[in-house]
Every structure is written in C-alpha cells, then in structure tokens.
Design a protein around this nucleic acid. Structure first.
Lengths: 242, 242
DNA sequence: CCGTCGCTTCGACCGCCGCCGAAGAGTCCC
DNA sequence: GGGACTCTTCGGCGGCGGTCGAAGCGACGG
C-alpha cells in the first residue's frame, strides 16, 4: 500500500532536545562549558548519581554528537565535541528559566557570587565583568553595532597594541569572528567568537585573570584590575564582585 | 539541619529542553517557524494527534514561554512568543540530526524539494536560494565577514537603492541587526536579523517572492528571477529548485 | 434555539527512561 | 600478583509523561 522506498529528511529537533532534557545530562553539559575534559567519575560526583548512571548518560551524549571522548588508561575523558556545540548550549542556557537551588555553605554562596562576576564560557569570558568589558570596548569605539557586532579599525589596532593576533587561523570563511553571547547572570551581551577567545587567552597569559581550581570561576588579579582601568577606563564598581 | 532559606539561581537547561524533547511539540514549533499564528486544531492535524493531546502540549509550551496565545471566539491562536525564541529554535534545528521521514505522495516529494529551495524562516528567507543570495551579496561586496557578519557601506547603499530602509526602528541597541542563520538543508549560512527580515519583506512586497498557501514554502516569480539576476548576478542554476 | 464546531478537562492506560546495586573487565601501582 | 580504582553491563524497579476517548463548555450560525 504505502511506498516506503521514498524518504525525505527533516531535522529531528526532538532527538536533540531529548539529550538535554534530563537534569543529570544538563548538569554534565553545563559543567563541560568550562572547556575542560572531565572524567566520568568527576561528572557523576558533580551530579550526584551512581557511576553506572553516568556511564549510560555519557553514552547517549557521545552517540548524539554533543560530547567527544578520549580514553586514557582506565579513565574516560569527555569534553564538548565542538565550539559550535558550546555555542548552542550557551544559547539555550541563556534563555532557560532560572531554577532556585538551595545553597548549603557559606563558601557556596561566595562561589556563586564569583561565578556571576567572572566565569569561563567555553573559550571566552562571561559574567558581569565580561559585560562591562564589552560595554567599555563599545564606548571606546573598538566595537560597533550598527550592522551586526563588529570590530572597528580602532579595535583592531587596540588588539594589535595588546599583542593579540586578530586573525588566529580561520577554519571556515563564514564562521563569525566576532560574536556575542547572552549572559545568564547579567542581562546583557558579552564578546564571544574568535576575537572573544583571543582576548580571553591573552588576559590569562598576561595574568590579568587566573582560573580558580577546577571550576568555571575566574579571578581578576590586581594587575588585571589595573590594566582594565588603564586600557578600557573601567570603573572600580565594575571591577569587583557583587 | 540544612538551611533552606538561602538559594542561588541556576539556568534550568533541562526544563527548557524538555519542552522541545517531544516529537509532537517539536513538530508544532517547527511549523510555527513560518511566523504565522496557527489554531490548535491545525497543529493537531499536522502532528497527527487528538485535539485533547494538542491542548495539553500547547499548555506546556505557553507556560514555558515559548508560545504566545491569543483567544478569538472559539479559536485559540498560538504563535512563537518572540523572534528570539524563533532564533533559538532555528539554531537547534540546524544542529539536529536528520530524520528520514517516509513520503507518501508525489506532491509531497515536490513540496519537499520546494522547501529546500526557498522557505520562510520566521521573518526571513531560508533554503538554497537564501544561501545563494547571501553568497552573492558577499561577492558583490555588500556583506563583509572579516570581523563578524556586517553590512558594508556599499551594501547599505544597495539597500537604499532598492528602497529598503536599513534601520527599521531598533528596539535594543545590542540586538544584532545583521545576523546569520544556519540552514538545515544547505550547509551554509543565510542572512537573518533585522536586515534579513527587511530584505525578505521587500522581496514579498515587490512580488519577487510569493508565499504558497499556508506552508513555509516560498515561490520565486519570474520578475523575482529577473531581479536577482540583474541586481546580484545570480546564475540560473541558483534560481531553480532541485 | 438547537446543531455544529473548537477547545478543554478528566481518567485510564501503557511504554519509556532514569535510577540503582551487583557483578565483571580492564588499568594502575605497590 | 594482589588490591584499589575506573568504568561497564545487566537486571529490575519505579515514576513520569504522552496518548486516547468520553464528556462538557462556550461560541458561532442557521
């Protein structure tokens, strides 16, 4: 009766969403937004599930193409498969409703405040500091928004002056080099894309920023504070957490 | 023991993904990407479910903020809540795996081919034609990609020449005006954002494009073919479906 | 005013999936 | 080689959620 020999292709939106539609898997992905490679046990502990449960979730995420894995000895390391995947998850997280999560200790409160101030967003900086930097780059005339977010000639010069290569090997011609990323703590956009990643890399190499342990938290150093004051005219209130 | 009086907020990624993690709800959202308002019955028929099932799904999507509803008489019209939501769904659909869906009739085959050629993507054009237009605008020097997708001065002039206002009331300063959108039929980017919407609106008003019935399909008219040949140097193979 | 139509509510069913613990395979180190 | 550790497979449990049909409500139109 029917003719099952002819098929057409449609995007399977539900299949992709199902991968993120579980609290445990979502927690995995949000943790992996720090850009690091995690072991299965680390992720299991983070999400509070048994190792066997974590294994099954990781299988699904890898099979779905969201995660890439690397076996090393008895460890299984996983990371986000692709900057593009990270971008997709960021975009979703920014539009997701907020969930109240009970805070157990005073250090957790502090860490949450630090997270809102400055954190890693895969390969660039996020948080109120990142929004402030983006705003300052705009008022300084380094970024223009008239026809999409772009680096101006002055901005390109500013990057060169800092010793940041503004063209770090373009894989795809059409991959946007300057991109913006919605912040889930702030309402505002911060700089992402290739330029965002370059600026972040430079800030870490110049010791303006240091990563804290194995978290997404980033701490602003005294020299970093001074540099941002000097080079972008950032005010003190933008340079301190909460 | 515990202190349930202190809470922090986290993005509830899983809650948002759950809304799209059902095949029926996903079908609703993909259909609504045409930018129209649909009634509950139309959507139920499209997805092949009972009216009562559609009701329950629509409740969830509205409560989750993805859809906006409007009651008119005995009808319930729903649409995507926001261009931002449309952008999010597009982004997801472009990265979702392809699903083979059996095609029943010859007209369905034809419609699928037309869909791949030119279709509505909420407020702008998608499909191979849209990709070809974007590429042509690039080679003509109307779009530049060095520091993020931007309209060049020449591009702004080209739009003015066509009678397209290039600054149609900016709601948010930071909302990108030129944006790109991954195509799920082509591998390639097409023009979106405010400029993409303006261009599409103009093309419809100038009768270059006409919408087909109540589908996402858009047909290129003979005058539209001529205009694109003339104004963008598009070749015939880019101007025909399949 | 009564039939039709669009939508909703409710109850019941059923299947999927996330969870764990136990057992086992592979790796590393003493 | 033996013990500790990481990850995996499997079986079984439990609950969430998508589905429908029946019944009801409100709007529209003859």
């Amino acid at each position: 009766m029917t003719s099952p020999d002819v098929y057409a292709e449609e995007p399977d939106l539900a299949a992709l969403a199902t991968l993120l539609a579980d609290r445990t898997r979502a927690a995995f992905c949000l943790a992996l937004l720090d850009g690091r490679a995690w072991t299965a046990t680390e992720l299991a502990r983070l999400a509070g599930v048994a190792p066997s449960t974590a294994t099954s979730h990781l299988h699904k995420l890898v099979a779905g193409g969201l995660l890439a894995e690397e076996r090393k000895g008895r460890h299984r390391y996983v990371r986000l498969a692709d900057p593009d995947i990270a971008e997709m998850i960021e975009g979703l997280a920014a539009r997701a409703p907020q969930r109240a999560v009970p805070v157990r200790s005073l250090t957790a409160v502090r860490r949450h405040r630090d997270l809102a101030f400055a954190r890693i967003c895969y390969d660039h900086l996020a948080g109120s500091l990142a929004v402030a930097i983006t705003d300052a780059m705009t008022t300084e005339g380094y970024l223009a928004w008239d026809y999409g977010p772009t680096l101006t000639a002055a901005g390109a010069g500013w990057l060169r002056e800092l010793g940041i290569a503004d063209e770090p090997s373009e894989p795809s011609v059409y991959r946007p080099h300057v991109r913006t990323c919605l912040d889930w703590t702030e309402q505002g956009l911060h700089l992402a894309g290739g330029v965002g990643a370059s600026v972040f890399r430079h800030a870490v190499e110049a010791s303006w920023l240091v990563r804290v342990d194995d978290t997404r938290v980033v701490r602003l150093t005294e020299s970093g504070r001074e540099a941002l004051r000097l080079r972008l005219g950032l005010l003190d209130e933008a340079l301190t957490a909460g």
